[in-house]
């Protein structure tokens, strides 16, 4: 059951990811990217990491991709995409070289990978649950977590400050 689900979602993820690249219309690319996030979240759920799945959807699908869509909707897409992208030989060569390099890096990185084989006797299936995640975050990774929290607070305060009216500025 889980295995067939995994293969289903994995193939769906790959399909969506490919569609992101080959879609002509950028808006469709974004929608397929959102679908990709969904299938990745499905993988997280299969791994019993519900928190990660939810946060993945909230942060990536719910916030970041909305901003992507924002930008794409304002720039004039659909028209003249073919014209602006110069398909000359130089671009093709650059694309091939970059793709080949990426492929090499991926192969080199995956060459020495040993798949983690958890011991079924000691393996805790609840490791991805919120409680365990929270415990780890608030003990082992306390300092990085706090630093990230401060970073977020600063950015939020910054956003509020940008929204504040300057003295002398007149809106309406």
């Amino acid at each position: 059951m889980t295995e067939s689900l995994f293969f289903f979602f994995a193939s769906l993820t790959l399909l969506c990811a490919i569609m992101v690249v080959i879609s002509k219309n950028p808006v469709f690319s974004v929608i397929f990217l959102i679908l990709t996030f969904f299938t990745i979240s499905a993988h997280y759920i299969l791994l019993n990491a519900q928190f990660l799945a939810a946060v993945n959807i909230i942060v990536y699908a719910g916030a970041i991709m909305v901003l992507f869509l924002f930008v794409l909707m304002f720039i004039n897409t659909g028209k003249n995409v073919e014209g602006t992208l110069k398909r000359n030989v130089l671009v093709k060569i650059a694309g091939t070289v970059a793709g080949g390099l990426l492929f090499t890096v991926v192969v080199a990185a995956l060459k020495d990978v040993t798949l983690g084989n958890p011991d079924p006797a000691t393996y805790d299936s609840q490791v991805g649950m919120v409680e365990n995640l929270g415990k780890v975050l608030f003990t082992k990774y306390m300092l990085p977590f706090q630093l990230v929290a401060v970073l977020f607070l600063v950015s939020m305060v910054g956003a509020v400050m940008i929204g504040k009216r300057e003295t002398g500025e007149q809106n309406f």
């Binding site: 519900q50 928190f51 939810a54 719910g62 916030a63 909305v66 649950m129 919120v130």
Partner: peptide, 17 residues
Amino acid sequence: VNIGILYIFGVVSLGVY
């Protein structure tokens, strides 16, 4: 699910689409 409120939050945030 043990992430109930996050689930609602995630689903609601998709309503924007």
